[in-house]
Design a protein around this nucleic acid. Structure first.
Length: 154
DNA sequence: GCCAACGTTGGC
DNA sequence: GCCAACGTTGGC
């Protein structure tokens, strides 16, 4: 099993929005970055992910989700009225993909970016999230990093 | 709202 | 293939 981290602006789509969605699951659309797309295409059903709130008063990890459907074409790229429309993505040869994720649980407390950064040069060295200038919206988390972050929760 | 960091685009 | 211009992300 592999581990990931999904960023979302809570004003756009929060952990609670996912929790309140039908069957507590939804598709993760709108990713328009090749590296993030490639990560999504390598996700397997059952993989786990952190749900991270970005661009908000207290950025940090708020919950855990599970991949419940593997990558398939992101249809929002074909819709001219969609915010993430990309005329270069052809339905015959889609450029962008998405996965479905299911809400698992909320963390007992928010683990802030600030707190995670304290370990950027030790336990969490190499974690893409705490590397300077990182802008990836979907990124991998190693198993040791995953376990370490879960230990911080307590 | 500012701005640093980064990815993408397109002229050459 | 280089690189300047531009757009976006996201912390602060």
């Amino acid at each position: 099993m592999n581990y990931w981290l999904f960023k979302s602006e809570p004003e756009e789509f929060s952990l609670d929005d996912l929790k309140n969605a039908k069957a507590r699951r939804d598709h993760w659309d709108g990713v328009r970055n090749y590296q993030a797309r490639n990560f999504m295409r390598s996700m397997k059903k059952g993989d786990q992910g952190f749900f991270y709130h970005s661009n908000c008063p207290e950025p940090g990890i708020v919950g855990i989700v599970e991949i419940c459907r593997e990558a398939y074409p992101d249809h929002t790229a074909f819709d001219p009225n969609d915010k993430h429309f990309d005329p270069k993505s052809d339905p015959e040869n889609p450029r962008w993909f998405m996965v479905d994720v299911r809400y698992k649980r909320r963390l007992k407390r928010l683990i802030s970016l600030q707190e995670l950064k304290e370990y950027a040069d030790s336990e969490l060295a190499g974690l893409a999230l705490v590397r300077r200038g990182n802008r990836l919206s979907v990124l991998p988390v190693s198993k040791p990093h995953w376990n370490f972050i879960l230990k911080l929760e307590r």
